[in-house]
């Protein structure tokens, strides 16, 4: 086992008296492909928000590359290579596709402090955002405004921004949700083609995608991690069937 890039130790998150995440511990290593599944309201997105720094955990700690980052700001986590995408795409809507990605490239290179530079036209910057857009097959959309993109294309752009930041750990929050099936296949292909060394943690509801993508599955129910193991085991695990998979594994016997 390679060293963990992301590690959660006994992480809990409560809103008022309600525990949304309860004593969650797991780790994700270099090259890992981990799916986080669970019924609606299980606390999956909250967990991603806690990991990415948008929310502070009530208890426990979060380590990135072995460093405790529990109290670190979002940008410092991003600097450490912890990158996320959003369930409902969040893009810079007044910028073009190219500008969205170029901004991420320049941020990664530390250029966004420059008040008086024309770095955005520089060849190395242009090559880089063109490369990232090319990887996701959306290079032809470079000059479009975000508002002119189809939803599936927006999701690919969201992923492109993430890739431009050269992630070590990539958190994907339902990357194919709400996307028509012909476009979702392109997103799935893009996820298949992610650089092998990146550790990927993906929230997903589509079990076909989970089985295709994941080498390890985490199941969250009522805020607790009730299972972690390989995808083959997950469907046969009684508690998981009861909590979540019922509707998928044997659609007839849901309660």
């Amino acid at each position: 086992m390679t060293r963990p890039l992301l590690e959660l130790r006994h992480v809990s998150k409560a809103f008022g008296g309600m525990k949304v995440n309860d004593d969650v511990s797991f780790s994700v290593a270099e090259g890992d492909r981990v799916a986080l599944i669970g019924p609606n309201g299980a606390g999956k997105t909250t967990l991603i928000n806690v990991i990415s720094g948008d929310l502070q955990p009530s208890e426990g700690c979060i380590l990135v590359g072995g460093v405790d980052m529990t109290t670190h700001s979002i940008p410092r986590r991003v600097d450490a290579g912890l990158i996320r995408t959003f369930q409902i795409t969040r893009l810079f809507t007044s910028l073009t596709v190219a500008e969205n990605v170029a901004l991420a490239v320049m941020q990664k290179k530390g250029l966004t402090k420059r008040v008086f530079s024309s770095a955005i036209g520089r060849t190395d910057i242009r090559r880089e955002w063109q490369r990232v857009l090319g990887v996701l097959d959306i290079a032809h959309l470079a000059d479009r405004q975000v508002s002119q993109l189809a939803y599936g294309q927006q999701r690919l752009l969201d992923l492109a921004i993430g890739l431009a930041l050269e992630p070590k750990v990539l958190l994907l929050d339902e990357p194919a949700a709400g996307v028509p099936s012909d476009e979702s296949s392109r997103i799935i292909e893009a996820i298949d083609r992610l650089p092998a060394h990146i550790a990927v943690l993906m929230i997903e509801h589509d079990m076909d995608l989970v089985f295709r993508f994941a080498r390890r599955v985490l199941v969250l129910a009522n805020g607790r991690l009730i299972f972690q193991g390989n995808p083959a085991e997950v469907t046969s695990h009684q508690e998981v069937r009861r909590a979540y998979l019922g509707s998928y594994a044997d659609a007839c016997h849901t309660h």
Binding site: R90, L95, E99, V115, L165
Partner: peptide
């Protein structure tokens, strides 16, 4: 039109997203 100017427009669009790219 500088990287800084572009970042400010991005912050206007969505400041949380801007922080999530490390800004």
């Amino acid at each position: 039109r500088s990287p800084f100017g572009l970042l400010c427009r991005a912050i206007k669009d969505d400041s949380l997203r801007a922080r999530m790219i490390g800004a």
